[in-house]
Amino acid sequence: MAPLPPATLRLSVDTDALAHNWRALDTMSGSAEAGAAIKADAYGLGVATCLPALRDAGARAFFVAHWSEVPEAIAHVPAGQVSVLHGPSNAQDAAFARATGVKPVINSLAQARLWIDTGAGACDLMVDTGINRLGLSMHEIGDAAVAQLEIDTLMSHLACADEDSAMNAGQLVRFREAVAAIPARRLSLANSAGIALGPDYHFDVTRPGLSLYGGIQRREHEGVIRQVAQLQAALIQTREIAAGESVGYNATFTASKPMRIAVVCLGYADGFLRSWNGASLAFGSARLPILGKVSMDMVVVDLTAAPDLKEGDWVDVPYNLRNAAEHTGLSQYELLTVLGKRWQR
């Protein structure tokens, strides 16, 4: 097969900014060690790119969600540094954990018994302190199966850490109750936003995720967390339209004067959803407003501010996560994880 032509979508990861963000969050974690959530292909930015940068910055505890995410992770770090958050659902999962050496996170009494019955060994344990997702309920922490586990990290997950909510303090109280009842080598409660809640929430290991990749959830992150993802898309056609002509599906934009416009190779198949309608792309300091609706594979922009652009030129996609979230109504998590496969990384 002939080699593929160059891509018309580029996603670059600023690994220096990524390493800076981990070091900043590690410093904010005080005496605790900052780990790194690398689930969902490092929040859409690529484990193969991000994990070595995080490892080299100093991270030693890594968290994935699915068993399918394990092979790529352990290609870069020792298996014992990787925890699988969804835990073992069957004997095959347990066998895979032992064969690779990664740690399952036990989330229920059923998982605890499965892990014990298939041979036990080191694991992590999630206790639910109020988010009501995965994790042992508080009334289950005294069960005999829990006492048989060899727990490396006892953890819970905050529901409202990005807000100044009374729920944070309530979860902290319940986590301390679990800590008093369950022996473990290490303790972990705080996610990215939880780190900013202060030392009471840090314990031994923090688990930053979104903020590693440029997400800003609390004021304490402002001026500290740097943008990591830089996106560019190519112009694939330019054209002139007359006053009265419309652009795109449903003719939602009609030109009031003659205009020079460009079709950009970018659409909702690439994670650039219709919630971006009304936004602008950029060329240097020039803003290029999107005209009409975002399509599956393309958008159309106004070239008035950059009239010399031509087919094959590249424009920037605004991906400051906080600003993008405000415009689109998407969460900062979604903005990263919806990015598709066509980006050349």
Results as ranks from 00 to 15, higher is better:
151 I>C: 00
235 L>E: 11
136 L>T: 06
26 D>F: 02
109 L>F: 03
196 A>F: 01
228 V>Q: 06
65 A>D: 09
131 I>K: 15
126 M>A: 10
175 F>R: 02
69 E>S: 14
344 Q>R: 15
68 S>Q: 13
67 W>N: 14
271 G>H: 03
178 A>P: 00
12 S>V: 13
195 I>A: 03
83 S>V: 09
220 E>T: 08
135 G>D: 08
324 A>N: 08
332 Q>D: 06
279 A>I: 07
291 L>Y: 05
23 R>T: 12
243 A>F: 01
270 D>E: 04
29 S>C: 02
51 L>V: 03
220 E>Q: 12
135 G>Q: 09
155 M>W: 04
83 S>M: 14
17 A>T: 13
2 A>W: 15
146 V>N: 00
24 A>D: 05
187 L>S: 05
111 Q>I: 03
48 A>M: 06
318 P>W: 10
273 L>C: 14
37 A>R: 08
312 G>D: 08
122 A>Q: 12
281 L>G: 02
311 E>A: 13
1 M>N: 10
33 E>T: 14
199 P>K: 10
232 Q>E: 15
37 A>D: 12
263 V>L: 15
144 A>N: 00
212 L>D: 02
321 L>T: 02
198 G>N: 01
216 I>L: 03
11 L>E: 04
215 G>I: 01
119 G>A: 06
107 N>R: 08
69 E>P: 14
279 A>R: 11
287 R>Y: 13
10 R>K: 14
28 M>E: 11
78 P>R: 10
172 L>C: 03
43 Y>L: 07
345 R>M: 11
98 R>M: 07
78 P>K: 13
318 P>F: 09
229 A>N: 08
337 T>Q: 01
